[in-house]
Structures are given as C-alpha cells and as structure tokens.
C-alpha cells in the first residue's frame, strides 16, 4: 500500500490540476518544481480544461502487475488544448477505432487496485472520445 503517494498526487490525478508559470505564463502539467521553459520556480496552481487530442496510442494486451484486470487497455499520449502532453489510458471507446488526432476529454476513473488482498482502489484521470 502506498497511501501517502496517492494522497500527495490526488489533485493532479482527480482534477488535472497543473501549474501556470508566474514568470513566462507557460501552462505546465504535471506540476513541476522548476518551469521547463524559463527555469523560474513554477508554483501557481492551474486547472486544465481536460480537452485534448490523441498524439499517439497503443494497446496493452499483456499488462504489468496491478493492471491485469483491465486488459486489454489502450494507453495514449494526449496533447492537452493548453499545450502540454500527458500519458493516460483511454476509456469508453466504442466501436470507433482510436486514431491519432482524435479529440478526447478527461474523466475520473478507477486506474487499478494497489496490492492484491486489501485492495485499495486508486482513481485517476483517463480520457474518452468527445461525442461529435
């Protein structure tokens, strides 16, 4: 069980809270200690819209430990509307195949259970196709 780790990361995982750099105004996700664009300290929270598009994706048929119950699952790098990219699973995929460039939006979902028996369930962001 890694409760402190999951607790520490909950803002970014539940609500896609990143940062805006007070020096150069770059939008940053996930939060960092130093702005990658201007090297200033970045500490101002910023709520991302959760809108984005698929930059790339793959399907995991053979999952690492902790993810077996989800297989097969689709993992993507999503380019957020505000600029940064994020790695996340895709969910609610219908019959439509995943495509690079496909618009997606963030939802909060169960990611995995932490540990086998006592089974703490860990939630976080996933992205689903935007209904058009």
């Amino acid at each position: 069980m890694e409760i402190p780790r999951h607790w520490r990361l909950k803002k970014q995982r539940y609500a896609l809270v990143g940062e805006v750099c007070p020096h150069c105004e770059a939008k940053i996700f996930p939060p960092r200690d130093v702005c990658p664009h201007c090297s200033g300290e970045a500490k101002t929270p910023y709520q991302f819209s959760g809108q984005g598009e698929v930059y790339s994706y793959t399907v995991m048929n053979d999952a690492p430990a902790g993810f077996e119950e989800n297989t097969p699952y689709t993992v993507a790098v999503v380019k957020l509307a505000e600029g940064p990219m994020v790695t996340a699973q895709l969910t609610d995929l219908g019959a439509e195949p995943v495509k690079i460039g496909m618009p997606v939006e963030m939802v909060t979902r169960r990611i995995r259970s932490d540990g086998n028996d006592r089974g703490m369930i860990v939630y976080g962001y996933k992205f689903r196709p935007v209904m058009q």
Partner: peptide
C-alpha cells in the same frame, strides 16, 4: 498509467 518500456516504444513507433 500502466505504461511499460515496450509501451513507450509502441507509442513512438505508432
């Protein structure tokens, strides 16, 4: 998020 070294390579190759 369930990403492995092979998945990273797959994302790049795709």
């Amino acid at each position: 998020e369930g990403v492995t070294p092979a998945a990273q390579a797959a994302l790049l190759m795709q």
